[in-house]
């Protein structure tokens, strides 16, 4: 394995060309590409099989198999002895594939190398619905940093890239989401920006006609575009409680009321923060989310002045939540 001097050395011989082609083939599997990208992003470029398994949401056994393939083609090297497999990027992977696995700033175009140039307009009919949904989610999430065109283009390209390399479609949506997010953060860094996701907050109560409506209206009012706010109920009512509507109208925010909606797993999955207001166990739990439970009295059937005090209690909690999320409400807010 003689490393050749930069530029204009003797051309590759057949054996060396075969070895490198095998490395490239090893690298074209999306899971393996992800393992390499993940390693490249770690400060010490080291990861344990169980970290990778958690990061990718793939069984440790499968990860170990990919690590073996990567080690066989000298893209990763085992570090330490015994116990759980722990790997680092090989010297060769760093030298030869860095531009592919860890796109960096390309000075000329101010874009990470390996990332497509931007052109507007994606023909979504070519893509599965789930890809379009990923684009919508990421657009919501990164709208304060990038335009919709940029985000859609990156989603489509990431999907194309992964799909054409992969024989198994099982992990494609998750991998597309991650690859796009990685590339957008690289692009943001290249432009001197920080990719700051817009937090997604979900309020859940039983009927989505009182408490969760008050909370979401107040949060939308205070945070505006800085937060994505949703609300839902485990047994949604036909309509929003009229007294609640009146209490919100007094604050001038009844325009934020939405028709009661059924809580879905998707909504919970999309949320960074889930706040339950008295629905308790009925709310599905997804690991890794932040949960708050606010014990708030149900305003159903109460008088306006009682609903006002419920509104005040919810407002106080929403304001603390904003501080918790590190978001400064616009100064014009009450």
């Amino acid at each position: 394995m003689p490393p050749r001097p930069p530029d204009h050395g003797p051309p590759l011989d057949v054996a060396e060309a075969r070895r490198r082609a095998a490395q490239l083939q090893s690298l074209t599997h999306p899971v393996r590409l992800f393992i390499l990208s993940h390693l490249a992003r770690q400060p010490d470029q080291v990861a344990r099989a169980s970290d990778l398994s958690g990061e990718l949401g793939i069984p440790a056994k499968e990860v170990t198999g990919h690590l073996a393939t990567l080690a066989d083609t000298n893209l990763v090297t085992q570090v330490g002895g015994g116990g759980e497999p722990t790997v680092t990027l090989s010297h060769e992977a760093r030298a030869r594939f860095r531009r592919i696995i860890a796109p960096r700033l390309d000075a000329e175009h101010h874009q990470p190398v390996g990332v497509p140039r931007l052109e507007p307009g994606i023909d979504w009919s070519r893509y599965p619905t789930v890809v379009r949904r990923i684009a919508q989610q990421l657009t919501q999430r990164f709208r304060t940093t990038f335009s919709r065109n940029t985000i859609e283009k990156y989603v489509a390209d990431s999907y194309d890239e992964l799909a054409s390399r992969s024989r198994v479609n099982q992990h494609l949506p998750m991998l597309t989401n991650r690859l796009t997010t990685d590339r957008l953060s690289a692009l943001a860094a290249a432009r001197g920006l920080r990719l700051r996701p817009v937090p997604d907050v979900l309020f859940v109560c039983v009927h989505n006609s009182g408490r969760s409506q008050i909370a979401s209206a107040i949060l939308r009012h205070l945070a505006g575009e800085l937060i994505t706010v949703r609300s839902a109920g485990t047994e949604p009512a036909q309509a929003v409680d009229p007294v609640v509507r009146q209490a919100l109208a007094e604050m001038g925010i009844s325009g934020f009321i939405e028709a009661p909606r059924q809580l879905s797993d998707d909504m919970v999955r999309a949320a960074d923060v889930v706040v339950t207001l008295g629905c308790g166990d009925a709310c599905p739990v997804i690991p890794g989310r932040r949960y708050f439970d606010w014990p708030i009295e149900d305003p159903a059937g109460l008088h306006l002045d009682q609903v006002r005090s419920i509104r005040a209690e919810i407002q106080r909690r929403v304001e603390s939540l904003l501080i918790e999320l590190g978001i400064d409400p616009p100064p014009s807010s009450p």
């Binding site: 204009h8 060309a17 490198r20 490239l24 690298l27 992964l162």
Partner: peptide, 24 residues
Amino acid sequence: MLARSLKVVANATRLQLLSLLLAE
């Protein structure tokens, strides 16, 4: 590098051709 290009380049003969070309 996009997927299609990556797949095409993952071939010994083509890598050799690229290396010859860059040495010209």
